[in-house]
């Protein structure tokens, strides 16, 4: 609802309030101005109506990944979501990330992500000669740089239905964020490790059915599915599902019958 003389509008917010035991949506009505984002309005609720409202935030510039929430059912960063997107009279719903356990109000425990991060084998750089430095060409590093934009907001983890709707899969599948990390390492030009078996057996890449929700919600604009997950699925197919390539690998590994030429 807009006030004609001041330009100030009023919005009704339905914010989830509760803790790990129970919770419910509480409605607040607060003013907001043109150009404001959802986090501004949540802060106004905190400042004027509900001083005990818990909300995690930090940079307010879409770089720290702290203020992730579900706004009208869609996982978004509150600091990057303009109020003008929701030009309507019905209340705006703000809920914590559903995939992770609620701590309090809009704050969730995202510890799962740090727990499984260690399952991705780290960079194994090629050994250099004494005095030699790694030289990396643009052609080799450009596809990896896209993955460096990840701010670990875990919106992709939240929206991924494999984790979101199937709690039991959390010990089998690490989620899109960590498959991006896997691709980043696997495609790194100085890396020497082969993570394809790990990707299949430990990280559960086969659980992803590439419905692209992670790509749709990524605030950093990373093409998670097309540039990270599918290329890794293809590499896993190289290793496990391509009989011709398996045969070629087997022939190559056959011991030589005569002296090396």
């Amino acid at each position: 609802m807009r006030s004609a003389d001041t330009g100030t509008q009023t919005v009704r917010l339905r914010i989830w309030r509760g803790d790990s035991q129970a919770g419910r949506f509480v409605e607040y009505s607060v003013p907001f101005n043109d150009g404001e984002v959802v986090l501004d309005v949540v802060h106004r609720v905190q400042a004027t109506l509900a001083p005990d409202l818990a909300v995690r935030w930090n940079c307010k510039a879409g770089k720290c990944g702290s203020c992730s929430a579900e706004i009208d059912g869609r996982p978004r960063l509150m600091c990057m979501t303009r109020m003008s997107l929701f030009d309507r009279d019905s209340p705006l719903t703000i809920a914590p990330l559903k995939t992770f356990p609620a701590e309090r109000d809009l704050v969730t425990d995202v510890g799962f992500n740090y727990a499984v991060a260690g399952r991705v084998p780290p960079l194994a750089p090629r050994q250099t000669e004494p005095g030699e430095h790694h030289r990396i060409w643009d052609a080799d590093i450009e596809r990896v740089q896209e993955f460096h934009r990840c701010i670990e907001c875990f919106l992709c983890q939240d929206v991924c239905h494999v984790l979101r709707d199937h709690e039991s899969n959390k010990n089998k599948f690490v989620g899109p964020r960590h498959l991006v990390r896997l691709a980043e390492l696997e495609m790194h030009p100085i890396d020497t490790a082969d993570r394809r078996a790990t990707a299949r057996h430990d990280l559960g890449i086969s659980y992803c059915n590439i419905t692209r929700c992670c790509t749709e919600v990524c605030p950093a604009g990373i093409a998670i599915t097309d540039n990270a997950i599918i290329p890794m699925k293809e590499r896993v197919a190289d290793r496990f599902f391509d009989p011709l390539r398996l045969l070629a690998a087997k022939l190559r590994s056959r011991p030589d019958s005569g002296p090396a030429k």
């Binding site: 579900e70 059912g73 869609r74 996982p75 559903k98 929206v159 239905h161 494999v162 979101r164 709707d165 199937h166 899969n169 599948f173 559960g204 086969s206 659980y207 992803c208 059915n209 590439i210 419905t211 692209r212 929700c213 749709e216 919600v217």
Partner: peptide
Amino acid sequence: RRVYYRSFWLSPPACAVADARPRYSGES
């Protein structure tokens, strides 16, 4: 695959909408 997983398998029907089935093993 994305099209038919969403449209026919309902796994998921849309982003942040619950899967139609209680169990899920993906493409494993």
